[in-house]
Design a protein around this nucleic acid. Structure first.
Lengths: 348, 348
DNA sequence: CCACGGATAGAAAGCGCTTGCTGCACGTGG
DNA sequence: CCACGTGCAGCAAGCGCTTTCTATCCGTGG
């Protein structure tokens, strides 16, 4: 039925051991023998049985990438960068790794499920992207699972997520706090005093950090942090739209809206426009992340650029052991303020 | 070191066979025994060895999803929908499947590599999304590989890709031709006579089909198909920007630009605007796919909506055997023309 | 000319799990 | 009261590969 190593061995007139060694290339095999084996392999169209070799070798070439929402370009870009450093036609032959991305939907349960599944597959490495949920029990469960993975020899790297102590995981964290501080600082510098803030889901670290940065900037400028000016929502366009309407209701006098990310900012723009407000003449709008579409918005979106590709690529390299982890296993990746047309000096 | 089935068996005072049966739930086990086993499992924190069970059972619970570009929301949305029907907490317990998405970058070589890797893992199913490349040898190699996969019992479904004959693969194809015809027809109906067309990469089926639809509409209206009005590029914003500049150089008198997809259309908008042309007063612009950001463009983009989520979900269900494949293994999924602000009656 | 070492190939013992078959202890009908 | 069917559990044979250890062959130096 299916071709096995033994079939190839028989055809090449060698032992299965030899075939295995040719395929893995980690043991001297005479050139002539190797040729003969390779010939048999192609003639029989032999494909190695992954599970069997993983079982025998007690390792696998699977690398898992966990993302919160694969449909969101933020994660898509990061996943793409990670995968490009892992999968496919890398230099050294045989180093074929299967990079697989798993969509957790941001739910800790699913995150845990996937981690278990990867553990079950004896994954070689796992990259977890995006902010974490701060709910105690969940966070603990995930930390414990990460710990188990690293103990079992799986390399774990967190990309765009704060470090998890005591798990042996390497972390490449985004400086969300600093970016947000800069962004809000920019608006304050322009003269804005009443800034609406559309935050993400309450329980996420990313949400909290960005909000903290925003508040730090307010405080630094001696501005009051009116709780009515902060609305929580999801990280999507729809949410930005609705939150903006709510903000407008609560504070018709605001002159700027800072959004949790670019998608939310776009929704905010739509809501403002429909409310008859011009951007940036009447209200300035700012986003976060600098996704590709942000520069095409009209007006182009002022935002904080996160080096998603660069960070992802680095995470991928660390995960495959091709780059040393940062000292202490923790590195902070900074964003860059991109000032564009959507923010301006407030009216009157 | 690591906990094995045997350890659980010892602790629960049963044979390994019994533990296996409890875990797989496909053989009668007395309730009391089951309890005991389950208790031992949690106490030991046992995690099944995936490769070992895949080897023994000659099946695995891996489902592969191939996409051209994971950073592109078009694929992100589809992948998300597919995965939502496959992975994680589905109803029936134990039915844990690991849905993995693989980024081919649109290259047939990598597509083949991933297919082989999945074959090697003895994947339960494979969903291939996005248009194919039409280069003969590559197409044949991929078809052969698909054939091998289906022969080996792997369910293969093509989502948003034309049927591959003789491969045993189920196909859910988008009606790109019809959508494009409708879209261009809409523009012609508005009175446009000189329409620029920004096509995707030449060798892709999606490109060809959309272009064919466009031309059918032109022909039906008795319009000449001026080859100077068609420019090929990639499926991204940048490409749309450059192609538009080129079109403007070639035909300053055009009144409409039809783009291969929404990202390209956005690039086109940017180029037009920078050239001092207003949309839609001076030039109408149309896209394809109706990705989430298209409605937020200013003006909102006229486009053809493809039911990405719906199609993806269906593909996922078929891949997991929870839905019957369409009769003949082929179904065509139609798009819907979304007329919005970016298209209007031409000036003068 | 023989002993010895390096290079290469083979034998065989698992890796951890699934599953067909056997075995045992009941409960039931004759 | 015995034969038999049923329900559960265990035995043991692999699944296809890797890898340690051993065997063989040859070239070389003494």
């Amino acid at each position: 039925m299916t071709v096995t190593l033994a079939d190839v061995a028989a055809r090449a007139q060698v032992s299965p051991a030899t075939v295995s060694r040719v395929l893995n290339g980690n043991y001297p095999v005479a050139a002539a023998t190797r040729e003969r084996v390779l010939k048999a392999v192609t003639e029989l169209d032999y494909v190695l049985n992954g599970p069997a070799s993983a079982l025998a070798a007690a390792t696998s070439d699977l690398v898992g990438i966990l993302v919160n929402d694969i449909a969101d370009p933020f994660f898509g870009i990061m996943a793409s960068a990670i995968q490009s450093e892992i999968g496919g036609a890398q230099g050294r032959a045989g180093g074929e790794r299967l990079a697989v991305v798993c969509n957790t939907g941001g739910s800790p349960e699913r995150e845990l499920t996937y981690l278990t599944l990867l553990q079950r597959q004896r994954a070689a490495a796992v990259v977890v992207t995006g902010g974490a949920v701060e709910d105690g029990p969940h966070a603990a469960a995930i930390a414990a699972k990460l710990r188990k993975l690293t103990d079992a020899g799986t390399r774990v790297v967190l990309c765009g997520r704060p470090p998890a102590e005591d798990t042996g995981a390497v972390a490449l964290a985004f400086d969300n706090r600093g970016g947000a501080r800069q962004l809000t600082g920019h608006l304050i510098g322009l003269g804005h005093r009443r800034l609406g803030y559309i935050a993400g889901p309450e329980e996420r670290t990313t949400t909290r950090h960005r909000l903290e940065g925003h508040r730090q900037a307010l405080t630094a400028a001696g501005l009051e942090d009116d709780p009515a000016l902060t609305v929580h929502g999801r990280y999507d366009r729809r949410s930005g739209y609705e939150a903006t309407l709510e903000l407008l209701r609560r504070a018709p006098d605001l002159t700027a809206v800072v959004a949790a990310n670019d998608s939310v900012a776009l929704g905010a723009c739509a809501a403002l426009r429909e409310s008859g407000l011009r951007i940036p003449e009447d209200v300035s709008v700012a986003g976060f992340d600098d996704l590709p579409f942000s520069v095409d918005a009209v007006p182009a979106l002022t935002t904080v650029r996160l080096p998603l590709s660069k960070a992802g690529a680095r995470a991928g390299r660390i995960a495959t052991g091709r780059e040393e982890p940062p000292p202490g296993g923790i590195a902070t990746v900074r964003g860059e303020l991109m000032v564009r047309g959507s923010t301006a000096v407030p009216r009157g």
